[in-house]
């Protein structure tokens, strides 16, 4: 693949803290290699800002392998930028060309308040998992792992749902800031496996209740979440969640 260098104009959301008023700042950047990752381009810019005596741009990132779910930039109106099935850290600069202007914002959702610049607080996701995103099995309780057979198709479908990295792109992409794709991924994973059966009803009801309490919006099935999900979590999980929820609503007795 041919490598090339490019000059770009960045418009980046700067906000000192949760209470401060934020605004866009414009930064020209030059000599960016097409081989760099998007975050490495930010490293270059931050190094320059530090050398100029300015404050670098705060953004969440950690593994830079597309799996920890920390990175979270909204790039030119798209969660994680233009490449399908890709986190910001795995987006590479060959996605852009010389002279491009890039607008970079934090996730925009009331339930994800800005911490600083491009960093947001996604604690709501932890609290939704706390509401039921688990199997209640204490350490030491387990029987032999091969005692319960699990059809391969079910295991594969559960794995596909469990691949969710909890980054919040689904919420950021949704016009309603709905967290349905995130919730449905966990509910589906456990609903598809025999180990998840005993608690499936309370899990669906409690996780949805917590989701509503956190202020996430409703799902109107536009599919933006699926289109922007870096792990390509399928919309069919939301259908499954709806089935689980309705079934639980009719039959759960407590």
């Amino acid at each position: 693949m041919e490598h090339y260098n490019m000059n770009l104009t960045l418009k980046v959301w700067r906000q000192k803290n949760a209470d401060a008023q934020g605004k866009f700042e414009t930064y020209p950047v030059s000599g960016i290699s097409s081989e760099m990752s998007f975050l490495e381009m930010f490293d270059v810019l931050n190094e320059r800002l530090i050398n100029e005596g300015k404050e670098p741009i705060a953004f969440d990132h950690d593994c830079r392998e597309g799996i920890c779910g920390a990175c979270s930039m909204h790039i030119n109106g798209r969660a994680h930028g233009p490449w399908a099935g890709t986190t910001t850290c795995q987006l590479h600069m060959r996605a852009f060309k010389d002279g491009d202007t890039l607008t970079v914002e934090p996730w925009r959702a009331g339930s994800f308040p800005v911490v600083k610049d491009l960093t947001v607080d996604r604690g709501a996701f932890d609290r939704i998992i706390e509401a039921g995103g688990y199997v209640s099995v204490n350490t030491g309780n387990a029987q032999d792992a091969n005692n319960i057979l699990v059809p391969k198709d079910d295991a594969d479908a559960a794995f596909a749902a469990a691949a969710c990295i909890g980054c919040g792109a689904c919420v950021a992409a949704c016009k309603n800031s709905s967290a349905m794709l995130f919730v449905s991924a966990k509910v589906s994973q456990l609903a598809l496996l025999p180990q998840g059966q005993p608690e499936k009803k309370s899990r669906a009801l409690n996780m949805i209740a917590q989701m509503d309490k956190e202020g996430f919006g409703s799902c109107t099935n536009t599919g933006a979440c699926e289109a922007e999900c870096p792990k390509e979590i399928s919309l069919t999980n939301i259908a499954r969640l709806n089935r689980e929820y309705i079934n639980a609503g009719f039959t759960y007795e407590k």
Binding site: V135, T139, G140, N141, A142, A145, A155, D156, F159, Q195
Partner: peptide, 15 residues
Amino acid sequence: NIIDQCVAQGVPFAR
């Protein structure tokens, strides 16, 4: 025991 515990938690290992 680790494999047993993880399967019981719903970890979707390859099958």
